[in-house]
Design a binder for these strands. Structure first.
Lengths: 128, 128
DNA sequence: TTGACATATTCCCATATGGGAATGTAATGT
DNA sequence: ACATTACATTCCCATATGGGAATATGTCAA
């Protein structure tokens, strides 16, 4: 198999940059498809397809208005994503304090010891 | 073309359920690959591949420990996602109040009018 | 009904994945 | 040096997309 279908959940749906742009565009006001096409400079079929995905996962709502269809972001459907990412908040706060502490320690150390040689490593995101 | 490469950004990386599971598992403690394999009941090569993707977008950090490699979630890299989703917070709050108001209005109305027939629609996530 | 709008779908195609199996590689023990 | 442990990569393959072009569908105006 390959990746789970895009239409299966909001995480997949927002993985697409254009879909995120559409969600942002429709966040505060209803807009017909054409407005999205113009505003984001995308092809109309492309927008329709993205809207289809977004609707399937409940990220946007639609209502007919004459010959047009007005779409609007259903912000509530984004909430679970916000909550999932929020689970990590305390960790990045920890990391920030640690970084700060390291910086301070280094600062203090730098007063006595000259800075290390150029090739010194730091972060750890290395290979092999 | 197809979708942008998974390795291009955190949004794509977290679109995978297993990768989210790995991030959660590595959030509070460093763990060797084998621990992930056991804990999440995945194939080792599969875990390595997911870790590769996560590392490429900076969502996890790695450090060698003898013959093992210890991975840990880099929570800071998740922060942008939290912030993006947070942009919609005020909107879903609006919606919640609206839903509440609708519910109350309906309640009040229900006192005078009997409930509608069984096939009645509500949300608006319809077709055509 | 015919024609113009506004959208949605379908076709075809190149590419991105992810899984499974097999294999490569680094580090440690003897 | 050799076997073992712990991971990473590569190959092959089925499937999921997304874009572009063409076409279908739905709605309103004459």
């Amino acid at each position: 198999m390959a990746r789970a279908a895009t239409t299966s959940d909001a995480f997949n749906a927002v993985a697409e940059p254009r879909r995120r742009a559409i969600l942002a565009f429709l966040a505060d006001r209803e807009q017909p498809v054409t407005a999205i096409v113009v505003a984001l400079a995308l092809e109309q079929p492309s927008v329709s397809k993205h809207l289809r995905v977004l609707r399937d996962v409940g990220l946007v709502r639609m209502r007919r208005d004459g010959r047009r269809k007005l779409y609007r972001t259903n912000a509530a459907a984004i909430r679970p994503l916000h909550e999932w990412t929020g689970e990590f908040e305390r960790f990045w706060q920890h990391q920030l304090t640690k970084v700060k502490q390291r910086a301070e320690a280094k600062m203090a150390q730098g007063i006595e010891t000259p800075p290390p040689a150029a090739g010194s490593r730091e972060g750890g995101s290395d290979d092999e």
